[in-house]
């Protein structure tokens, strides 16, 4: 088995997730038997094209991080598969897995927790190179210094320890570490949500620049829709372990079809007091992923919900070219906006 990616042209599917399921057991009682399951990722399928950024949005607890981590085989899924360049990564043996790991990297949310506090940051950045035995010690140092410079840090920082850096700088270090191995595919898991507002734009621009330079493919996980709109080519919306909508950025933001997508778009505060828009305020809370609601997971909060939604799960269908949605009420010939206006709105 080869993890060759040469044959995949830009725009073709590089990573394909097929019906991925990841449940966490809840144990209880004296015998620590499994009493229930947290259905973190509950049957998810999508593809990521080479060179694109796929944004993945959802509220906390919807399973977006679990999905990302499972896609890298840092967790074992209960079922389903992830194909990287046509090869199912869960079929790889240890040796092959190590090869695969070079091509797939992750940037974590918390730059404070994800760097070893006892190692100079230069060592952390080189750790991957050491493990994979790339080049001589000298060459590795050169790569490390080159990466530091690429992410906007000075070479002499290499000897410093993580606590000497600010949050934004630490996130740059995390990016340098992820990119040192020249990966093809990088999962960015909320890379800017722990940063100050004036630092966020620096890191977002950096991620974009590096993508252009190294032809990277990103899965960008975030809860902030504006950020996702800025960075993504296509966007997937996740709710309680399922992807409910997936489309190209312009399409999704101009014609959101799923009611949940419409609601989170209207709920996000816009930094413009004159912004005039529909306000949908969803009632209720996000249910727990332990025993999620039957049928469509969203139905208890959805004003469009009918009997059907409660009983049966809607299929994830391509309703327009490259616009996927899982909802029983799509495909009616009602333009979405007029549908919205008739909607009873809370308060």
């Amino acid at each position: 088995m080869h993890l060759d990616t040469e044959h995949i042209a830009p725009g073709e599917i590089l990573v394909e997730v097929k019906n991925l399921v990841k449940y966490f057991p809840i144990r209880g009682g004296v015998l620590r038997r499994v009493v229930d399951w947290v259905k973190a990722v509950d049957g998810v399928s999508f593809g990521i094209r080479r060179g694109e950024t796929l944004g993945l949005v959802g509220e906390s607890g919807c399973g977006k991080t679990t999905l990302g981590i499972t896609m890298l085989r840092l967790l074992k899924p209960n079922s389903g598969q992830v194909d990287f360049a046509g090869v199912n990564i869960y079929d790889l043996n240890t040796e092959q897995l190590k090869m695969m790991r070079r091509k797939m990297q992750i940037i974590f949310q918390d730059p404070y927790a994800s760097l070893n506090p006892r190692k100079p940051i230069g060592e952390s950045i080189m750790a991957g190179l050491n493990i994979h035995g790339i080049g001589t010690r000298h060459e590795r140092v050169d790569i490390m210094l080159d990466m530091l410079q690429k992410v906007g840090l000075e070479g002499y920082y290499a000897h410093r320890f993580p606590h000497e850096f600010s949050g934004g700088q630490r996130q740059r270090i995390g990016i340098a570490r992820a990119l040192a191995l020249q990966p093809e595919f990088v999962i960015c898991d909320e890379p800017i949500s722990a940063l100050d507002v004036s630092i966020q734009s620096q890191v977002l621009n950096l991620l974009k620049d590096l993508q252009d330079e190294y032809h990277l493919t990103y899965l960008f996980i975030a809860h902030n829709l504006s950020v996702v709109e800025f960075i993504s080519d296509r966007v997937a919306v996740m709710y309680l372990g399922k992807i409910v909508e997936l489309a190209a950025r312009e399409e999704l933001f101009s014609h959101p079809l799923h009611y949940y997508t419409q609601a989170i778009m209207s709920a996000i505060p816009i930094a413009d007091p004159k912004a005039n828009r529909q306000r949908i305020i969803l009632e209720g809370e996000v249910p727990t992923p332990i025993n999620p609601p039957s049928g469509c997971h969203f139905h208890p909060r959805c004003p469009l919900a009918t009997q059907e939604c409660m009983l049966e799960e809607p299929p994830f269908l391509e309703v327009k070219p490259d616009h996927w949605v899982a909802c029983w009420h799509i495909g009616l010939d009602i333009p979405v906006n007029s549908q919205l206006e008739e909607m009873p709105r809370e308060r």
């Binding site: 600010s166 934004g168 700088q169 100050d196 507002v197 004036s198 630092i199 966020q200 734009s201 620096q202 977002l204 621009n205 974009k208 829709l225 504006s226 950020v227 709109e229 800025f230 950025r249 312009e250 933001f253 778009m265 996000i268 816009i270 930094a271 413009d272």
Partner: peptide, 24 residues
């Protein structure tokens, strides 16, 4: 000015965000 221009705003897609250099 820098702060307002550095945040992405829904529905106004920019290619690059403006940046306030340096740190707090």
């Amino acid at each position: 000015k820098g702060l307002i221009n550095s945040i992405p705003i829904l529905g106004r897609v920019k290619n690059r965000l403006e940046v306030i250099p340096g740190v707090v």
